[in-house]
Design a protein around this nucleic acid. Structure first.
Lengths: 210, 210
DNA sequence: CCGCGATTCACCCATTCGGGTAGTTTTGCG
DNA sequence: CGCAAAACTACCCGAATGGGTGAATCGCGG
C-alpha cells in the first residue's frame, strides 16, 4: 500500500501507555499511520497545523486545556478536521458536549480494537456512526432538560456538600432563592433530594469530582 | 541479552488497547518480555499456572472476578507471586485493599512509562516501593477508621439516595437505629451530613457508582 | 465470666429540608 | 418596545434530618 493512501492520524492523550497502545494498534494496520502524538491540547493544536492529519483521536480529560475546548479551537481553525473522541468515561454529559463541539464519533477506551479501527476508517470516509451503547447514553442525555448557569453553580455546591445557608452566602442570594433553584433542579434531574441530586450529577458527568 | 535473563510478565487488563500499550512498553525494553496476556481474572489464573511469570501487571476493575479477588486467589496458590497493580482509579480504598491482598506495588495508568518500567524491575528484584502520590493516599486511608459491615450497608444505601425510613425498612431495623449508625458514620468519614457522606464514599472508592 | 465493640431501640429537640404559592426584578431576544 | 425566561425573594408548613442521652442485647476474645 502506498504511503499517500494511508490515513494520517494525530493521537492526543495524556496517558503515555494508552497512547502507546493506540499507536501500536494503528500501526498494525496497513492503511493507516500515526503522524504525530500529543499529551495535551496545546501541543495537539501545534501538531495539527504541522502535520494536517486526516483524523484526530482525542481524549477528553487532559491537564490544562480539556478535550472539548481543544475540539472547539481545532474546528474553528480547521472546520474540516475530523475528530474521534476516545475516552475512559462513558458519561452522558461528556459525550453530549463532545458531539456538540463537533466530534464525529465517540469511542470508549475499553472497546475492542476492531471497533476503534473500523470507526477510524468510517470517519475518514465521512461517516460518523456512533456505537449503540454510546448512542443510547446520548439519547438519555437529550431527554434530560438543560440546566441554567445558576442551577449548575448550585449543583456544584451541592456536590461539595454545602448546606442551603452556605450556598446562599456563597452566591450572595437568599436561602429562599437557593431552595427555589433546588426545586427546579430536582425536577429536571428527576430526583427527590440533594443527595440524589449530587450522586446523579456525578454519575452523569454534569459535575466532576476532585 | 539472553532470554533466560529476561523478566517474564503476565499482563492482566480488560482494556484491549491499554493492554496493547503495556505490551509494547515492556517489549521495548531488552530485559523484559510479556509471556502472556489476560482480559479477566479467571484466564489470568490459568495463564499464570502455564507460564509461571516473574511479575504480574494487574488491573483492578475487571468484569467477572475483580482484581483484588484475583490477587487473593493467586497468592493463595502461588505465595511467591509478585503482583503490581496498574489501574486507572487512584481511589484510597482500592489501593488499600490491593496492598492488603498482597500486591507489591500500585501504579496508576497515567504514570510515565519510565516509572512503570522502573517499578517492574524493582519488584522483580524484591523491592516494593510505592510511588509518593500513591503512598500519601494510602496513608490517608489508614488514618480513616474502619467501617463496620452494617455501616457499609447503610453507606451504600445512602449513595443510592435512600431516606432513613427506606433504609430502615430495607434492613429490617428501626429508623432510630439507622440514625445511630449515621452518627458514627459521619464522624468516621469526617462529614456533616448524608450528602457529604455519599460524595466522600464515592470519592474514596468506599462505594462504587454504577 | 467479664468486658468490649457492635447492634439495636427509644425519646427529645432544634435545625434543615422540600413543597406549595405568590410576587417582583432582571435579562435577553425578536 | 414588549414578551418570555430566568433569577430572586418571601411566607407557611409538614416531613426529614442530625445531635444528645440512655439503655438493652449479642457475640467474641481474654
Amino acid at each position: 500500500m502506498k504511503a499517500k493512501d494511508q490515513i494520517k492520524l494525530l493521537v492526543v492523550d495524556d496517558h503515555p501507555t494508552f497512547r502507546m497502545g493506540l499507536v501500536a494498534l494503528v500501526e498494525s494496520q496497513t492503511d493507516m499511520t500515526v503522524a504525530a502524538e500529543a499529551g495535551d491540547g496545546k501541543s495537539a493544536m501545534d501538531l495539527f497545523r504541522q502535520k494536517k492529519p486526516d483524523v484526530v483521536l482525542m481524549d477528553l480529560r487532559m491537564p490544562g486545556q480539556g478535550g472539548v475546548e481543544t475540539i472547539l479551537a481545532l474546528l474553528k481553525e480547521f472546520p474540516s478536521a475530523r475528530v474521534i473522541v476516545v475516552t475512559t468515561y462513558d458519561l452522558d454529559e461528556d459525550i453530549f458536549r463532545a458531539i456538540q463541539a463537533g466530534a464525529k464519533s465517540y469511542l470508549l477506551k475499553d472497546m475492542p480494537r476492531e471497533q476503534i479501527i473500523a470507526t477510524i476508517r468510517d470517519v475518514h470516509h465521512g461517516k460518523h456512526k456512533l456505537p449503540p451503547g454510546v448512542l443510547s447514553r446520548l439519547e438519555e442525555r437529550s431527554r434530560r432538560q438543560e440546566l441554567t448557569e445558576r442551577e449548575m453553580e448550585i449543583l456544584q455546591l451541592i456536590v461539595k456538600g454545602r448546606s442551603n445557608k452556605e450556598i446562599s452566602s456563597a452566591l450572595f442570594i437568599s436561602e429562599d432563592t437557593v431552595k427555589y433553584h433546588l426545586k427546579t433542579l430536582f425536577t429536571k434531574l428527576g430526583v427527590q433530594d440533594r443527595t440524589e441530586a449530587a450522586i446523579s450529577a456525578v454519575r452523569h458527568g454534569i459535575v466532576h469530582l476532585e
